[in-house]
Amino acid sequence: MKTNVNLFWILTVFFAALCAVYVVWALLDTGYVEWVGAVGLGLCAVLSAFIAFYLRLVHRNQGGELAEDRLDAAIDDGDAEQGFFPPWSWWPVILAGAAAIAFLGLSISFWIVAYAVPFALLGIVGWVYEYYRGNFGR
Rank of each mutant, 00 (worst) to 15 (best):
D29W: 14
D29M: 11
T30D: 14
T30Q: 13
Y32L: 12
Y32G: 06
V33W: 03
V33P: 01
E34K: 11
E34R: 08
E34D: 13
W35N: 06
W35K: 07
V36I: 09
V36R: 10
G37C: 08
G37H: 06
A38N: 03
V39D: 07
V39N: 07
G40V: 14
G40D: 15
G40T: 15
L41G: 00
L41W: 00
L41V: 06
L41S: 01
G42A: 05
L43F: 15
L43R: 04
L43G: 05
A45V: 05
A45R: 01
A45Y: 01
V46I: 15
V46N: 04
L47F: 15
L47H: 06
L47K: 05
S48L: 02
S48M: 03
S48P: 01
S48W: 00
A49Q: 05
A49N: 07
F50Q: 12
I51W: 02
I51D: 02
I51R: 09
A52C: 10
A52I: 09
F53Q: 14
F53A: 13
F53L: 15
F53K: 12
Y54R: 14
Y54S: 11
L55F: 08
R56P: 01
R56K: 15
R56C: 05
R56A: 07
L57M: 14
L57G: 14
V58G: 05
H59K: 06
R60H: 03
N61E: 10
Q62H: 08
G63Y: 04
G64I: 08
G64K: 03
E65F: 04
E65N: 05
E65W: 01
E68D: 15
E68I: 09
E68Y: 06
E68S: 14
D69H: 04
D69G: 08
D69N: 11
L71D: 11
L71Y: 06
L71P: 05
A73L: 06
A74Y: 06
I75E: 11
I75F: 11
I75L: 13
D76A: 12
D76R: 06
D77K: 13
D77T: 09
D77G: 13
G78N: 10
G78S: 11
D79K: 12
D79N: 10
A80T: 14
A80E: 14
Q82T: 07
Q82L: 15
G83L: 04
G83I: 03
F84M: 09
P86L: 04
P86E: 08
P87E: 15
W88A: 09
S89T: 07
S89I: 01
W90D: 04
W90V: 10
W91V: 06
P92S: 05
P92Y: 02
V93I: 14
V93Y: 13
I94G: 07
L95W: 04
L95E: 04
L95T: 08
L95Y: 03
A96I: 10
A96F: 11
A98S: 11
A100D: 08
I101T: 09
I101D: 01
I101M: 10
A102L: 08
A102I: 04
F103V: 14
F103S: 08
F103H: 10
L104P: 00
L104Y: 02
L104G: 00
L104K: 00
G105L: 02
G105E: 02
G105Q: 00
L106N: 09
L106R: 08
L106I: 07
S107M: 14
I108L: 12
S109K: 10
W111H: 08
W111E: 08
I112A: 02
V113H: 00
Y115M: 15
Y115K: 03
